[in-house]
Design a protein around this nucleic acid. Sequence first.
DNA 1: CCTATTAGTTACTTTAAAGTGTCTACTTTA
DNA 2: TAAAGTAGACACTTTAAAGTAACTAATAGG
Lengths: 141, 141
Amino acid sequence: MSRSRYPSPCPVSMLMEVLSGPWTMYLLWVLSTNGPTRFGALKRRIEGISTKVLTERLRMLEQEEILYRHYEPTVPPQVTYGLTERGQELVVILDQLNDLALRWYTPLPDEHSPSERCVGLASAPTVSPAPTVSPAPTVFK
Amino acid sequence: MSRSRYPSPCPVSMLMEVLSGPWTMYLLWVLSTNGPTRFGALKRRIEGISTKVLTERLRMLEQEEILYRHYEPTVPPQVTYGLTERGQELVVILDQLNDLALRWYTPLPDEHSPSERCVGLASAPTVSPAPTVSPAPTVFK
DNA sequence: CCTATTAGTTACTTTAAAGTGTCTACTTTA
DNA sequence: TAAAGTAGACACTTTAAAGTAACTAATAGG
C-alpha cells in the first residue's frame, strides 16, 4: 500500500508515481480552480468517477500532504478537501506543463488564443456505448 | 492505440497520460543525462525493463515527437534514440518537478546537500525473490 | 414511519497493462 | 560450423488496478 510494486529511490519517480493514474491530475485541477470542496461536490464535478476511486485518490493525496481533509462531525457529516501548501506548489508546475500541453496539443484554432487553463474539462471515461455526439469525455489515464 | 481508454480533450491530461506508466520518466531521464543512445544501451542502463516495454515506450514517445529514432541499416542494424526539441522542453519542467520531489522526499541527510538530479537511479522492478541486499530497484509505476 | 442525505466501506468482477519466453534476419568472428 | 550480437516482433500468462454494486450510521423532514 505504501507505493506500488516498484520501490522508487528516485524522488522524481516517486512524485510521478503519485500523480499518475486516472483522475488524480484532474482532481488536483478541480481543487485548484474551485478551492476547498466537499466530497459530494467533487464527485459531482468529476463526472464518471466512482466513489471508490475518488476516496482512494483523496486518501493517497492526503497522505502525501498534497491536500488536507477537514471532517465536520455533523449529521450527516461534512468533509471538505483542499490543497495544502505542497498542493499549491505542485499546481504551479502543473500550470507550466499545461502551457506546454496547450502548445503541443491545441490545433491553435485561429490566432492569438489566450493560453487558458485546461479548457474543455467535461465528463469522464465511458465503458458504455455513447458513440453519439455525447459530451466529450475528459481526464486522462 | 491512439491514447488509452480515456479520451482526453484536456491538454494537461493528455500529457500526463503520455508521461504516466512505468519506465517512461526514467527513460526520458536516461536520455537527457546521457544524450542519444542506442536501443541495446538503453536496455542495459534501464536495468529490469523488458524489450517489449522498452519498445512500446520508445514508439509512443517517438509518436509524441518527444524523442526521435534514427535507424542505420548496417548489419547488424544500429538504432539510436534521442530527445527532440519537445523532449528538451519537457525535461526543463521535469527538472522542476525533480527539485520539488527532492525537497519533499529527501530526508535532508545533514545540511547543505546540493540539489542533485535524480540520484540513486539503479535497477528496476523485481517480481522475483532477490530479498537480499541486491541493487535497489528504481523507476516508478 | 419511511425516505433522503452524506461520506464513505466492503466484496466481487472485469480488463488493460506488464511480464515472460521464443523466434527472426544477417553478418562477423572464433 | 557454430555462436554471438542487434533490434526488435509475436504469442501467451499473470496481476494489479479499476469498475460495479450493495450496505452502513445518524438524523431531519414530510
